[in-house]
Design a protein around this nucleic acid. Structure first.
Length: 774
DNA sequence: CTCTCCCTT
């Protein structure tokens, strides 16, 4: 049954092609299929050690393989004409529709999807084949001997030879700790600082600590690190670890990075928005400067694209040290995925004697529900399930509760960790033997037309699925249960996630690029460009804020705005606060707003009371903004009392972070020449007037109870129930944000007068007036 | 009449 009559397939396919030779749809399907199959056979299959397949699925794989070979042949022989542009545009359009993002019909797509990459030349691969071996399954796996150590000479030879080098190393190879040491050993630190970036703060600190321990240096002297609010460097610092965001800020103040001899961008495959933009900027620095080396390091994922971007930079491969993970797929799709999760956990517990379980779910809510269901089920079979210990894990959890997952339990017990994708990259839990992957995650999306960022539950990418399953093979052989079918994996999961830069508001980035003298943003070489719509709408916003002039040139205000690490809207408000004589108040308020976190906790039980507390801090004119401000001031007044914070249903972590940001803003504003004027409780309307200088585009009227007519687009949105503006009618309001869930809500609202708005932006309001017959 | 995956300057 496993042999396939290839003639038969050829006849079938050529038949179809002949019949529809002018039908783009078929061509598109074939291209998609080729791309899909290519990825599957080149990237996915070799990375999985054992795949458990049902007979029917095995036959399916073989059929896919045959099909792939045939389709590739057909495509390469150019047997049909392809209008690539049309297809790709349509594909992107469909993608956005699928992702719930509205997109105008006249959109022009700048960069195309990497579809016709198939025949592209591959970069030079540097690799010693003899030593390329997996450390798989060897029980005497020496922990101290990291795989990367074997490559010292060849690696350093490559660094000397090439200005840009891509390093592809799998998990556990030890590249991040060892490569900086290698560079130090051969003397690159004598030419300048060795800089290493990471996307996450915690990783920076841990790395710096480990490397300084291994090199016998004191942390903060020769080995340093720098993250926001925390810097440990000295004049003697030779190796500096930092977050990518910090390095980006440094590029703006020193565009050639003259103090550095080498920069290593680590975890490049994660495609953080900052790493992405550093790609473009560092590419230029390499061309401009002699004696500057750039190392891009990534996990084994789509590096050809990176290499191509860096004019075919060579790749250096280092194998890792992962144990094999057997993958199991569901036979049929599940209707209720939480139900499937619960059943799988219970089945695993009964059938496997030993081993901890890690479950990937979408968010806090799902985790809490699952735990509730499990506890109910366990009650019925108390004897069997009494040895299970459940641990939730998500970012919003207190760090004490987060740390509980690292505790070793008595061997009698089995740990079951229910996690968001925080456990996919940020937190590594030792001793996981089984992974259950729901195949879903929450993903940030951005709609540039209404400027709304929202979170949508989406299927994970193939790469995430791979990363999740890898979590089962860190210390021994593991198993991964994917709660979707192989077919779903092959046909519906995207190969990789859309990079963050295409899913975010890029106002700050655009402003930063303007500061660096990038005039033509449409032509700017991004690894993956945001759409031209996103860019031009961003430019329009910056123009209205006065950051750039009508020719697109940076203004003085714009220059000052870019110095403040916050979104341009808030930067504008901060800079205006001098004029309105309320700079201290505004600085406090913007610090809180910049975090974008909820200040109040809404407990399910005490909801009515917590609402009363909230209203207590609101003011005249009615304003949620002033409420936030009052909370912070009251916190100071109560001597930062923890009890006061708890009694008032406030999230103390937000206040603590806001305090740090507040201190940073004060320093920056003083440097920019803003007078810091102490607060005056009687002048709340000055605070709101000042807010208008940044929020004059977020304006609406509440003429019907709890319904706000948005002026910019004439849409009606609900007032969020947590706002003080609930059940309140007023003529004009400004609002901080739109929350998009099932319904669109506006939130963090303040009452304003139309004169205030016209005063801060007569230009905008002359346009609005004409369109709305005000 | 109800809200947030993970990060970061």
């Amino acid at each position: 049954a496993m042999t396939i009559n290839s003639n038969n397939i050829i006849t079938k396919i050529t038949g179809i092609v002949r019949l529809n030779s002018r039908n783009q749809y078929v061509v598109k399907r074939i291209l998609q299929k080729i791309k899909l199959l290519k990825f599957y056979f080149k990237e996915i299959l070799p990375n999985i050690k054992n795949i458990y397949l049902y007979d029917s699925e095995l036959r399916g794989v073989l059929r896919h393989l045959k099909l792939y070979q045939l389709l590739s042949k057909l495509y390469q022989h150019n047997k049909f004409l392809v209008d690539k542009n049309k297809i790709i545009k349509k594909k992107i359009f469909q993608y956005y529709v699928k992702k719930n993002i509205r997109i105008s019909k006249h959109v022009t797509i700048l960069k195309m999807l990497d579809i016709h990459n198939i025949t592209n030349k591959k970069p030079q691969i540097i690799q010693n084949k003899k030593t390329f071996k997996y450390a798989n399954n060897s029980a005497d796996n020496d922990r101290k001997e990291l795989p990367v150590k074997k490559y010292f000479h060849s690696l350093m030879k490559s660094v000397n030879q090439f200005d840009i080098l891509m390093i592809v190393a799998e998990t556990g190879a030890g590249k991040t700790t060892q490569i900086p040491k290698f560079l130090f050993r051969i003397g690159y630190h004598k030419l300048g600082i060795l800089g290493v970036t990471q996307p996450r703060r915690l990783a920076v600190i841990n790395l710096a600590r480990r490397v300084s321990l291994e090199m016998g240096n004191n942390l903060g002297i020769e080995i340093g690190y720098s993250i926001r609010f925390e810097e440990q460097v000295s004049i003697k610092t030779k190796i500096k670890f930092m977050t990518d965001g910090i390095l980006l800020r440094e590029v703006v103040s020193d565009p050639t990075l003259s103090y550095y001899s080498v920069i290593m961008l680590d975890e490049a495959h994660e495609r953080s928005i900052y790493t992405d933009i550093l790609f473009s900027l560092l590419k230029d620095i390499v061309l401009y400067r002699k004696n500057f080396k750039l190392i891009i390091s990534s996990a084994t994922i789509n590096v050809y694209k990176f290499s191509k971007f860096f004019s075919n930079a060579p790749l250096f491969r280092i194998p890792g040290r992962l144990y094999s993970v057997t993958i199991f797929y569901s036979k049929k799709p599940h209707l209720d995925y939480l139900d499937a999760v619960v059943k799988t956990i219970m089945q695993l517990h009964i059938s496997k004697i030993i081993g901890d379980i890690l479950v990937f779910l979408t968010g806090q809510e799902d985790i809490e529900i699952t735990i509730e269901i499990l506890k109910k089920k366990f009650k019925f079979n108390n004897k069997i399930f009494s040895t299970i210990r459940l641990f939730p894990l998500y970012s919003n959890l207190s760090s004490d509760s987060q740390n509980r997952v690292f505790r070793t339990l008595d061997s009698l017990y089995r740990k079951v960790i229910l996690s968001t994708n925080i456990a996919e990259t940020s937190i590594t839990i030792p001793g996981i033997k089984y992974v259950i992957d729901s195949g879903l995650c929450k993903l940030k999306c951005y709609n540039p037309h209404n400027r709304v960022e929202s979170l949508l539950v989406s299927p994970v990418s193939k790469i995430s699925a791979l990363q999740r399953s890898g979590r089962a093979g860190r210390t021994e052989k593991g198993e991964c249960f994917r709660l979707y079918t192989l077919n779903t994996f092959l046909e519906t999961l995207d190969n990789e996630q859309i990079p963050e830069i295409q899913r975010s508001n890029i106002d700050s980035l655009i402003l930063m690029l303007k500061c660096l003298g990038v005039n033509n943003l449409i032509e700017f070489e991004f690894l993956d460009s945001p759409t031209s719509d996103t860019i031009s709408l961003s430019l329009g916003h910056l123009y209205l804020l006065g950051a750039i002039n009508s020719k697109g040139q940076l203004t003085k205000t714009g220059k000052c705005m870019s110095e403040i690490p916050v979104i341009p809207t808030l930067a504008k408000i901060l800079l205006s606060s001098d004029y309105y004589k309320c700079s201290e108040d505004i600085t406090i308020l913007c610090s809180i707003l910049s975090l974008g976190s909820r200040l109040f906790i809404y407990p399910k039980k005490n909801n009515i009371y917590s609402r009363k507390v909230f209203k207590k801090y609101c003011s005249q004119p009615r304003s949620d903004h002033v409420c936030y401000l009052n909370v912070f001031k009251e916190w100071i007044y109560n001597n930062f009392s923890t009890k006061w914070v708890q009694d008032n249903f406030i999230d103390i972590r937000v206040l603590i972070k806001a305090k740090l940001v507040y201190e940073q803003f004060l320093t920056l504003l003083t440097r920019l020449g803003v007078n810091i004027i102490s607060s005056n409780r009687k002048q709340n309307h000055y605070v709101i007037k000042c807010l208008c200088t940044g929020l004059f585009m977020n304006v609406g009227r509440i003429k019907i109870k709890n319904t706000c007519l948005i002026i910019s687009n004439s849409l009606k949105m609900r007032v969020h129930p947590s706002s003080s503006m609930i059940d309140f009618l007023t003529d004009w309001v400004i609002f901080q944000e739109i929350i998009f869930t099932n319904i669109e809500f506006i939130n963090i609202i303040s009452e304003v007068k139309i004169e205030w708005l016209i005063k801060v932006s007569p230009l905008y309001y002359s346009v609005i007036k004409n369109n709305n017959n005000l």
